[in-house]
């Protein structure tokens, strides 16, 4: 590279290979990175590529204790050392009272989020990029 700027198409190729957490941080690198990372074409392209990579898939699970619902994200190819993270509720649909949810299921293959409410209400949502905050990491032990 030697003092030359890296061409934009190469930057895109590299950014497409980064996890969501890095991308959210790197929006703060400069204006052009911010517009690229927020661009829906970039998000869709990244999603299409991640889809075929089994190692980037995750489960989203919910667990109700008393009146509070806890959410966990788990690496999808479930192994003895899969990481389980306690996460904030998926912040993708406004106006939903997450405490009323009786279950949630997420398929990272096609980004469908299934929200199940008591009795007869079921909501399917397609999300482009699920962003959940990792609160705590735990490793499953077999």
């Amino acid at each position: 590279m030697h003092n030359n700027k890296v061409p934009h198409d190469i930057i895109i190729e590299i950014l497409l290979k980064l996890p969501a957490k890095s991308l959210l941080r790197f929006k703060g690198v400069c204006k052009s990175w911010r517009s690229l990372i927020e661009d829906s074409r970039f998000i869709n392209l990244r999603h299409d590529r991640c889809k075929s990579d089994i190692n980037s898939h995750k489960f989203l699970m919910s667990c109700k204790k008393e009146d509070h619902c806890y959410y966990y994200s788990v690496d999808a190819p479930l192994q003895h050392d899969s990481v389980v993270s306690l996460v904030d509720p998926p912040n993708v649909v406004s106006g939903i009272n997450y405490d009323q949810l009786s279950g949630v299921c997420f398929s990272s293959r096609n980004s469908m989020l299934l929200l199940i409410f008591p009795y007869d209400e079921v909501v399917f949502v397609r999300t482009i990029m699920i962003i959940v905050q990792e609160i705590q990491n735990k490793t499953c032990l077999a």
């Binding site: 590279m1 003092n3 700027k5 890296v6 930057i11 590299i14 950014l15 290979k17 980064l18 996890p19 890095s22 941080r25 790197f26 703060g28 690198v29 400069c30 204006k31 990175w33 911010r34």
Partner: peptide, 22 residues
């Protein structure tokens, strides 16, 4: 990408010679 993944914003700018215009 693997080398950049965990870098701070400051480190990325320096590694790729990017000027911050935000």
């Amino acid at each position: 990408a693997d080398r950049l993944k965990n870098k701070s914003v400051r480190a990325v700018r320096e590694m790729l010679k990017i000027t911050n215009d935000l």
